[in-house]
Computed example of a mutant assay.
Amino acid sequence: MTEMFDMLRELTDLPGVSGYETPVREYITERLGIAKVARTDNIGNLILEIGTGRPHIALVAHMDEVGLVVTKIEDDGSLRFRKVGGVDDRILLSRKVKIHTANGPVNGVIGIKPPHLMTDPEEMKKTVSFEKLRIDVGTRSRKETERLGIRVLDSVTLEKGLERLGRDLVVGRGLDDRVGCAILMESYMRLKNAKLRGRLTCVWSVQEEMGLRGAKVIAHTLNPDYVIVLDTCSSGDSPGVDEGHLQPAILGKGPAIRFFDSASIASPALRELARELAKRRKIPVQEIVAGGTTDATAVQEAGSAVIPIGVGMRNTHSTTEIVSLKDIENAVRLVVELVKSLSGRDSSSE
């Protein structure tokens, strides 16, 4: 698990706001040594193919994370911004951030009005919308800020490095979906020398957080028979959180088969196959109805049989996302078994 923790730490240290995934793509390419065999399509998906023919199996994980983008430099040197993806206004106050410029990262802070300056006691109870917030980069003028290399359209990430939490859990920013990226990387390493029938395509996709854009391109250009999407799934398994009507994915109890979510239904045949393989190989799995959606929605609409495999996550889209390393390892095991089984199938019979 130490090796997986180290890889996750390196992945989450990288900025990769939707539309700005290049550092993540370059890291994956270098780490796996695939520069000569992988390709990048026009939208930015990293694509690696092994073998030819049918069945065609695709593994998909998105590289991007939610974040911010600079929209204006004020006369006093502070920065206006907008949100990229599903960022909750509640997590923005009193945050350290990094502005990713052409000259390198610049530190900044989204400040908070101290109670000493408040005249209305109710003010502390209100959520401040992002439109009313600014990023302080320690300057006093627009020119001073521009001399730091900051420009409109620079991406911004909230700062929080990866740390261990207890024996098995890790906490940090961007684990959605660097967890899926890591699972896909490790699955590729275990499958690259396997004797598979047909074609296996590994795809690290872009702009999932902005409407599954990279996956939509994949769906219409690759036309896979089977797609296994690797992502996280929000868990109600957290102190003080009531999951309501949804079955929570319990951290440490295995990867979750996301059969239903807000926009897609997984293939019943792939669900049964995953359950059968997990039982046979003694891989713990959970079956859940999830909120939100994944890249599976986009590829399913193009006719592929899909199954999203999720790793349970506390505090999704925050700087304190929490996952289990055991769940990640068991997700890799399940993916490898699924690919090996599907590669021996006749896709026309599904």
Rank of each mutant, 00 (worst) to 15 (best):
residue 5 F to I: 08
residue 9 R to I: 04
residue 10 E to V: 05
residue 11 L to N: 08
residue 13 D to Y: 07
residue 21 E to H: 04
residue 21 E to W: 02
residue 22 T to Y: 06
residue 25 R to E: 12
residue 35 A to D: 12
residue 35 A to M: 10
residue 38 A to P: 10
residue 38 A to F: 03
residue 40 T to W: 02
residue 41 D to Q: 05
residue 47 I to M: 10
residue 54 R to A: 13
residue 56 H to C: 02
residue 57 I to A: 09
residue 58 A to T: 14
residue 64 D to C: 07
residue 71 T to M: 09
residue 71 T to L: 10
residue 71 T to Y: 09
residue 71 T to P: 13
residue 87 V to R: 02
residue 89 D to N: 09
residue 100 H to R: 06
residue 105 P to S: 03
residue 105 P to I: 00
residue 107 N to Q: 11
residue 111 G to Y: 02
residue 114 P to L: 01
residue 117 L to M: 13
residue 124 M to A: 15
residue 132 K to P: 07
residue 133 L to V: 05
residue 135 I to N: 12
residue 138 G to A: 09
residue 140 R to Q: 14
residue 145 T to H: 07
residue 146 E to Y: 11
residue 152 V to A: 11
residue 155 S to H: 12
residue 162 L to Q: 01
residue 167 R to H: 15
residue 169 L to W: 00
residue 173 R to F: 00
residue 173 R to V: 00
residue 174 G to Q: 06
residue 181 C to K: 05
residue 182 A to N: 05
residue 184 L to F: 02
residue 186 E to C: 08
residue 195 K to V: 05
residue 195 K to Q: 13
residue 198 G to V: 03
residue 201 T to G: 11
residue 201 T to C: 07
residue 204 W to T: 07
residue 205 S to K: 01
residue 207 Q to W: 00
residue 208 E to W: 00
residue 210 M to P: 10
residue 213 R to D: 07
residue 217 V to Q: 00
residue 219 A to G: 11
residue 221 T to A: 04
residue 224 P to N: 03
residue 228 I to C: 06
residue 230 L to S: 10
residue 232 T to D: 08
residue 253 K to P: 14
residue 258 R to K: 15
residue 262 S to E: 04
residue 263 A to G: 14
residue 268 P to K: 07
residue 269 A to Y: 14
residue 269 A to W: 13
residue 278 A to R: 10
residue 279 K to M: 13
residue 279 K to F: 13
residue 279 K to I: 11
residue 281 R to A: 15
residue 283 I to F: 06
residue 287 E to C: 11
residue 290 A to N: 06
residue 293 T to G: 09
residue 296 A to H: 08
residue 303 G to W: 02
residue 304 S to W: 01
residue 307 I to C: 15
residue 308 P to M: 03
residue 311 V to H: 03
residue 316 T to Y: 03
residue 319 T to N: 06
residue 319 T to H: 04
residue 324 S to I: 01
residue 326 K to S: 15
residue 333 R to F: 07
residue 339 V to C: 08
residue 343 S to P: 11
residue 345 R to V: 13
residue 346 D to R: 03
